[in-house]
Write a protein that binds this DNA or RNA. Structure first.
Lengths: 187, 187
DNA sequence: CCTTTCTTTTGACATATGTCAAAAAGAGAA
DNA sequence: TTCTCTTTTTGACATATGTCAAAAGAAAGG
């Protein structure tokens, strides 16, 4: 729980009252490897914060699994589309390792927004930061070569190489596993 | 100005007080074709709402201009990264047609947040919607073929074909102009 | 240790897309 | 209309990446 509050302090420093209100509705949960935190076709009612472990988000696109996202410690995790629209998710979120997470329900979050505008500010700021990161990834996906994207991963997210199987990483980079293997081999 | 309030009603209905507060700090401005609303290397201090006209956002990437975004009537426009971080922008936003926009400054917006939590809620919700749209584009960019992306454009944003030159559209789709020309010719 | 299973690499080839150059088509102005 | 300028299309070829199949390597269980 402390990890969580330390982390969100980077975005916006809450006063004690809001902090305690959040603490009351956050539930610590443990799940084992391969559990799905969000499931295609089902509405995702929770936002999760990863305390320990890692997850991947993937779509089933034309019969193929495509991994679009990885989450590690200190990441917020949910099917964002489903969580904010209250409609069935298009993607799955799967635990790659056993995980401990903090969960907050959609309804609890809305109540916090109403009662503590500070919480809404915090979330606005976090969302904005996640937006900017997604923008960067979008530009990389659209305008950089596979080699450049892999180099970027090495520079900024080397931990992914350690903890995720190659097939998922290849998909995350938008290339086939074979091509990734060749890029790694410096060919 | 009415267009603007009609539009934001779709996201969240403000009370009269917040609405008037916003109206006070929104400035209508007109700019002619090719003006830059945001400039690489400069901090972008305003958020714009396009009342009339259209714009494109582009990066200079390895000496090449890459168009990553188009904005038309009813779009919010800014260098998002620069606007929220107060750091120099990496991209340019250029008017493709003469435009009328509504502008709000960063400082005015923060004051609104402090005084009218409703405004912060509105912005949170708008941000969330823009996030989901960006996620869709990201998945398309990373996991769909050029042909599929063009078909998506035809389905969901045919107005872009009408109002933007082919070179920009090709870049927006992440392909060369020649390839786009061939895709259009059904080859 | 050996056997089984899963992951990663390699090879051969197909395909999509990029690049450069030229031709064609379209839009404005005189 | 004709001339000029810009945009779009076409052609020839190069390159990056995908696909399928097989081999090699690593991990897990007995």
């Amino acid at each position: 729980m402390n990890n969580f509050f330390d982390h969100i302090d980077h975005f916006y420093k809450l006063n004690e009252e809001s902090r305690q209100a959040i603490e009351k509705v956050l539930h610590q949960q443990s799940f084992s490897k391969n559990t799905l935190l969000a499931t295609e076709g089902k509405v995702c009612h929770h936002m999760y914060f990863v305390e320990k472990g890692c997850v991947r988000g993937y779509y089933n696109l034309d019969g193929k699994e495509v991994t679009y996202w990885f989450g590690f410690e200190y990441s917020f995790v949910t099917s964002f589309y489903s969580f904010i629209s209250r409609k069935p998710a298009f993607e799955n979120i799967q635990l790659i390792e056993d995980c401990t997470v903090l969960a907050i329900s959609y309804d609890d979050l809305q109540k916090l927004y109403d009662k503590y505008p500070e919480v809404e500010r915090l979330v606005r700021i976090i969302n904005e930061n996640y937006y900017v990161r997604l923008e960067e990834r979008f530009v990389a996906a659209q305008f950089k070569t596979a080699k450049e994207r892999y180099a970027g991963l090495l520079d900024f997210s080397p931990h992914i190489l350690q903890r995720m199987p190659l097939g998922y990483i290849a998909s995350y980079l938008g290339i086939s596993q074979e091509t990734l293997s060749r890029i790694r081999g410096k060919i």
